[in-house]
Design a protein around this nucleic acid. Sequence first.
DNA 1: ACACTGACCATAA
DNA 2: ATTATGGCCAGTG
Length: 115
Amino acid sequence: MSHKTDNTGFFRKVYRIVEQIPYGKVTTYGAIAEALGSKGAARMVGWALNSSKYNLKNLPAHRVVNRNGLLTGKRHFGGSEVMKTLLENEGLQIEDDRIINFREHFWKPLAGDKL
DNA sequence: ACACTGACCATAA
DNA sequence: ATTATGGCCAGTG
């Protein structure tokens, strides 16, 4: 993995969207990939966020969950409850690694922004 | 250059 | 309901 700060292309676009997720809102890997024009590249979004922990530590990566509102990335936040706690601090309710009323807190990335 | 992996997703059986 | 499969594409060995 690259521990550099020179993120190019796809990764940079992912970061650009993630940093726009409003406080208390969440979005999904697939939605980000779709906004980027690569619908099937949802897996790469997670991969980009994985790298982000070496580059951009302020990135609100905890606001990205899978399409079911499941905290699938929790194991990459160090402790097992870290991601959950971060979200709860933003007013979300989580039960069994799933965001309650996920749809109401979902934020759709703006597909139009050029990045 | 090739094979495999991955914080995913949609579809099919 | 669950499992299997293909796609997506950057990174790594």
